[in-house]
Structures are given as structure tokens and as C-alpha cells.
Write a protein that binds this DNA or RNA. Structure first.
Lengths: 151, 151
DNA sequence: GATCTGTGCGCAATATGCTTGCGTCTTCCT
DNA sequence: AGGAAGACGCAAGCATATTGCGCACAGATC
């Protein structure tokens, strides 16, 4: 993992569909060794995959909410809760935290009405929960644009 | 935007480097119309881009922290704060919220030591802040794997 | 109910880019 | 200083992307 590899990571993070030729030119290599490096990075698990980024509005997911959840502090409740999360597609992302809240969910739905329905039908119905606190996102201040690659 | 378009979005979200041939086969089309649809989705802004997903551990960013920040409630302070965030690469993602906390940051650094340095050098140094609360992520319960595409 | 029109599919040909084997150079270790 | 391993660049063969064209289907109009 040298400077060129890091350049490759930066470029592919910005545009995952860069052609090998273009990528090679940008990092100062010819196509052959460039592709070998990419393959190597993929095999080593440095590059986990490639993903298209979709506009949430276009697929009716423009309304995002952060939900703090407190779960009863016993193993069964936690495991059941986390398993249940997997089956709610609206839950985009979930973290278990130290301290309070015990868990944070990021949820994407169409609008406030859709969130109300999700809240009443799914979230409050989850077992072992002692507290639910919804916070609507006013604005995304910084877009997740990938990890910084130092060096 | 019909059922085939949604299939395309699902497939490309799962693997953004799918060849057009393979993609066409999966959604039940021949390569030509399939590529035309993809181009259209790109032009319409439904597909915002493509991105390689990198293992945070491999680039020294395996230690993630969620930071709640309270900012003084005046326009200048908020704008200065949000502008300052843009210049801290360790801040991967930032949301301005209704209610409390006023702002939530997701931060990725190498380890606890690196976070301590960031905290003391950058976070506490930000102007207009009234409260900073760091929460270390114990576990990512649900991986962000893209948006669900209904239909 | 027939015709017209617009939209979208599939086919085929061209061009582009990917992929692999091989020779050469550098670098590091002994 | 010599040897070996790793990485680069070149070139050839091959897969894939890309474009223009003809055709079929659906909706609207008369």
C-alpha cells in the first residue's frame, strides 16, 4: 500500500466507474499495472465493493430521521431488537453505542406521514424498548463522500 | 421510472461495476435498451454517481465516533461552525437537527489516541459551541447498504 | 374500428477498452 | 557485487460498450 495505491483509492471513491485507462492516466501508470493494483486491492479486501449512489428523493426516501432508542439492558432484549431491525428496510443504518442512547437508527422514508406510520406500526411495536426519541434532520451539513485517504 | 428501472437501481446499488451485459441479463433486457435506461437514470439525476466502498480499517479509519454538538443559536455561529466542519476531513458526515442536539457528526479516525487529539485540537477549538458529547460506536448493527427501492 | 404517432425494444456493426503473457528494469537482500 | 523478486510497459487477442436502424406495441384521434 503505497502512494499510488492511495491515489487509486481516492479516485475510485470519487468515481467508481472510472475506466481503467482513465484511472491509469490519473495515477501515472499504464493500464496493465494499474489494473493489477486494483485487483489486488479488491482481493485484499481494501476495496469492499462498488455502489451506485441514488438520489433519495427519486425513490421516495427524501425524509430522513434519526431515532434514539433505549433498549432494556439484557442480552435477550438486545439481540431480539437488533434482529428485528434487519427486517425493517426503512432503517438504513443502525449503531449500538456506549452510554445513552443505547442505539441510534437512521431512517429514510417518503415523508412525515410515512414516518408516522412506521413509528406507530413498527418502532413502538418492538419488544424490549424503554424509550424512543425521533429527531428529524433539518439539513445534511456534510455529505458522506467517502473516507479520507491519507498519505 | 417503471419496474425495470427499479430493478436496475437495485442491481447497481448492490454492485456498481456490473457490466452492462450482465445487468441487462439480470433485468431481462438486451444490452442496448439497458444501457439507454442507465444513461437516462444518470442524466435525470436518479443515479448521482458511483463509488468504491473502502474498508475503514485498511485506511486507518476503523475507529468511529458520533459527536453531539450544541451550537449557539444565532445565525453567524451556525454558519461559521458548519463552514469549519468542511475543513476537517475526519468528519465524515454531519447533520443539523431539530431539537437537541443541534448537530450530529460522524467521525472516523484511526484509534482512541487519534480521536483524543482531534477532540482537543479541532473540536473543542471550534467557535460558538456550547456543548460537545462524544459517543463511541460499539458496533454497527446494520450496514448502510443503500436505499430500499420499492415497487 | 382503422390509422397515425410516439415510445421503446432488439439486431448488427464499429469502436473502445479490458485482459493476459512476456521481456525489461529497478530494488533489495545476501 | 551478484542474484532474485517484484513491478512496470508493450503488444496481441478478446470481451464489452456504443451507435444507427428497423420493427412492434400502445394510446390518441377521427
Amino acid at each position: 500500500m503505497d502512494a499510488i495505491d492511495r491515489d487509486i483509492l481516492r479516485e475510485l471513491q470519487a468515481d467508481g466507474r472510472l475506466s481503467n485507462q482513465e484511472l491509469a492516466q490519473r495515477v501515472g501508470l499504464t493500464p496493465s499495472p494499474c489494473m493489477r493494483r486494483v485487483r489486488q486491492l479488491e482481493q485484499d479486501g481494501v476495496i469492499l465493493g462498488y455502489r451506485a449512489v441514488i438520489d433519495p428523493e427519486a425513490v421516495e426516501r427524501g425524509f430522513e430521521v434519526l431515532v434514539s432508542v433505549e433498549v432494556r439492558r439484557d442480552r435477550e432484549a438486545v439481540e431480539a431488537f437488533e434482529a428485528a431491525l434487519q427486517d425493517i428496510p426503512d432503517v438504513i443504518e443502525a449503531y449500538r453505542l456506549f452510554g445513552s442512547p443505547g442505539c441510534l437508527l437512521r431512517i429514510a422514508v417518503a415523508d412525515l406521514r410515512a414516518y408516522e406510520r412506521l413509528w406507530i406500526e413498527k418502532l413502538t411495536a418492538l419488544a424490549g424498548i424503554t424509550e424512543v426519541n425521533s429527531q428529524i434532520i433539518m439539513k445534511r451539513v456534510k455529505e458522506p463522500t467517502g473516507l479520507p485517504v491519507d498519505g
